[in-house]
Design a protein around this nucleic acid. Structure first.
Lengths: 219, 219
DNA sequence: CGCGTTACCTACTCGGACGTAAGGTTACGC
DNA sequence: GCGTAACCTTACGTCCGAGTAGGTAACGCG
């Protein structure tokens, strides 16, 4: 029997602060995405991070602070991923298509990030919900700008059957919902997902531009 | 000065059990929709209901039980509202339109019910999330059946650009998202909302049926 | 080698919220 | 008029988890 006992899970020791913060944030995203804000416990996060609880508090502050950092980091990642894929010189439909592809690639690559942003962030009342809602609103307005630009470009005026804002809200919702669906169907590629959505939306939109309108028949 | 002091909020006393249960459920839906499952406290629910806490436990069980009853009651209401509006003899597009109208009318009339079902029910991990997800899946399949029936009726075969299930998931998401948007725009009527969605979806869908397909141009 | 400083942990406090025990009050049957 | 059952409450036990106090081990520097 040696003196040197096999220590279990030999935790790394005395690492620089930046590295610890990264570990903690990674663990936090993982646990928050799994259990949600309220059910997740700081003890579990610290355990997953391989760090004791006071470290979290000295480095990143309260539970709410920690959650905020998670949200902001992942949101930034998502926005960067989308902006990286988008080509501002292309026509509106191609811009939308590239944006959607990047979006679905991100969701596939970083499921936990997406879950935290989409599902969990709203469950914390107050500031975070507002923040997320704002981001979502900006996304909607961005899409609305695309749609409207395509519309006016083709000579679409004001129509009773049509609201850019409402339409965009629906489109963003459709994209999100399809993202959730894609999580259960990993074999469907991002290109296919984006194409589905384009087919759903853009064809109908073109018809609208050309003046075709669906109306309820009788009763 | 009379002996009869003006008691504040004179709570009703000794009401039959059924009435109390209704009051409690109403209060619970209200509080849960406002604060979410975890943040809502049984004390607050009891206060809003005008009833003391043990009543809730003797009549409706634990907090989780109570939440379950809320979910189920509101879900039933929603389904009934939709089924009431739908006319099974009409063609698929009209069925969808009527269903959507009923849905938006329900959301407008019972905001809190919708919020609890859509936003809060997923924040409780485990059984309820699964239950809600199942309901949502059934809704998606229902819509998919409509869509596919319309598709095959018009002679649409299997297409690479097309998945009834994925499309329906997107459509349901769009409907939900538009419902949330409508909560902030109460002046828009249910008929208008439903029409927007029909225009978004059905026109494009008809194009698909006719073989038109959107494809990315170059790059 | 000593001494301050930084990294880090064990072990605790404390508040808040679920759930309950025990008892009081009103109605109703007989 | 009196027991009995249903209705309803106050006041408490208990547990879980956020946040912290204080101590230990490693490293830098003279």
């Amino acid at each position: 029997m040696t003196e040197e006992v096999q220590r279990p899970t030999e935790r790394a020791r005395r690492l620089p602060r930046a590295v610890r913060e990264r570990q903690i944030l990674d663990a936090a995203v993982q646990v928050f995405s799994r259990y949600g804000y309220h059910t997740a416990s700081m003890d579990e996060i610290s355990e997953v991070a391989g760090v004791s609880k006071p470290m979290i508090y000295t480095y990143l502050g309260s539970k709410e602070d920690l959650f905020g950092q998670c949200i902001r980091r992942e949101a930034t990642r998502l926005l960067e991923a989308i902006q990286e894929g988008v080509k501002p010189d292309l026509p509106p439909d191609m811009q939308l298509w590239h944006g959607l592809r990047s979006f679905y690639r991100f969701v596939a690559d970083f499921r936990e990030s997406w879950t935290v942003l989409h599902r969990q962030a709203l469950t914390v009342g107050g500031a975070f919900a507002a923040e997320i809602t704002d981001m979502r609103t900006r996304a909607i307005e961005l899409v609305a700008a695309l749609v409207v630009s395509a519309g006016t470009q083709k000579g679409l005026g004001e129509q009773a059957e049509f609201s850019g804002e409402g339409l965009s809200a629906a489109l963003v919702g459709a994209a999100e919902s399809l993202a959730d669906w894609a999580l259960d169907h990993p074999d469907v590629s991002d290109g296919v997902l984006a194409s589905w959505l384009m087919n759903l939306v853009w064809l109908g939109f073109n018809d609208l531009v050309e003046g075709k309108v669906w109306k309820p028949s009788e009763s």
